[in-house]
Design a binder for these strands. Sequence first.
DNA 1: CGAGGGTTTGACAGATTTCAAACGACGTGG
DNA 2: CCACGTCGTTTGAAATCTGTCAAACCCTCG
Lengths: 248, 248
Amino acid sequence: MLRERSLAVSQECSDCPIRHRAVCARCESDELDRLEEIKYYRKFEAGQPVIWSGDRMDFVASVVSGIATLTQTMEDGRTQMVGLLLPSDFMGRPGRDTAAYDVVATTDLVMCCFRKAPFETLMANTPHIAQRLLEMTLDELDAAREWMLVLGRKTAREKIASLLAIIAQRDSALHKTSGSGRIVFDLPLTREAMADYLGLTLETVSRQISALKKDGVIVLEGKRHVTVPDMGRLLEEAGDDTDGGILA
Amino acid sequence: MLRERSLAVSQECSDCPIRHRAVCARCESDELDRLEEIKYYRKFEAGQPVIWSGDRMDFVASVVSGIATLTQTMEDGRTQMVGLLLPSDFMGRPGRDTAAYDVVATTDLVMCCFRKAPFETLMANTPHIAQRLLEMTLDELDAAREWMLVLGRKTAREKIASLLAIIAQRDSALHKTSGSGRIVFDLPLTREAMADYLGLTLETVSRQISALKKDGVIVLEGKRHVTVPDMGRLLEEAGDDTDGGILA
DNA sequence: CGAGGGTTTGACAGATTTCAAACGACGTGG
DNA sequence: CCACGTCGTTTGAAATCTGTCAAACCCTCG
């Protein structure tokens, strides 16, 4: 299989692609050495589950590459996505031994795992890890609260625009599109996953995407390739404050 | 004013009502001494704002008594509550100097404040504070994600039942109603605040509360005093898993 | 007594969901 | 090579939930 080759990952923390953003970001080289002793990589193919809610979970992990979703499910099958794990994001909770959410790889995924017990003892002796984890958790809390506004108060059209804006901004941050020009990206989510993120049905997602396309807010090539001619317009549609949007 | 007397608070950390649950919970007595040096109390009357989103914020604080709400507001006035601050909850973010949300006292409120700069340096030298703050932040993140499911996927009736269940459980934890019998509490929120929490209009909140009352899920005396004859039934209405609900 | 805040209730409109059907892309097997 | 099934997606029509607008109620307070 080609996959084995394409997923080959560096075993060296020093040239890890998420070295400066993950939970280990603030570690000194000696601290990194100790992390390196207890780390191991796991790979998942697109669509595979990483863990199910309630399962015993004896590790924590960072996403090295790929995307995973965190979802909650009700007894009758309704599901809500509660988080999106992107490269450098952290998964698992020190001090808890079962998974709180379903985690599924939506693309091919590589995770840098640490067994929980050694990680916890390491964390107790390494303030830099705990500091960084606190920082990341506070960021996630802000993101979750931002999303509560989207879920609770925005219309279907605004929800779609909000999601597109987030993905667009994340992508433009990576690609460094410098110029204020058009933004182009691929949707990493199916219509159904978008619906689960937004608290909508997939039909509504499809309809609203078509509407935004008809109104020229976005341009579609195929189902997944999106061009945003005017980011300000998209943010307007999202209902976001455009004040101080110089930097967007 | 009577208020001044009724809000009198202890100045001693050692007999503080939130001593064992707040951000200082894990501190040793010497660490507590240092916190005591930089702390000061602030009192707010019901309805008063604590801070507005975007304002400069040079302190962090713990709620000692009373309830405050965290809300986000869109340009056109739509608002969504994104958190409820109860006694022992923490407000503010080390490392950030402006408020991210509107904070309003919904009841008379007492906060134990620390100026941000001294608190941050103290935190850097006092792992117990950072550890506890991480724990509390992770709990808040879980609560926020739980709420995302409520906002995104539950019906109006389920939303109301979910909110009542949360308040009921919090209260029964305090009052230690030991017996599995009826649970009684007062709603600390107006219909409008409940609507802001649940992503509904106040009219829908009112209607659904009436419906739950008509169906015998709850019993109302006046507008605020609620009795839950059967907690299992309420949880069912909330769409929550009732499995393993022995302890609820 | 009157005013105001919080609440309830009604009628209607509208947004989103539900149910159904059909499309296009893709890979498999005949 | 093409038929076929699957998966993700689009589109339509009807049903339903929730929001909107309006009026009235209750209670407290001045």
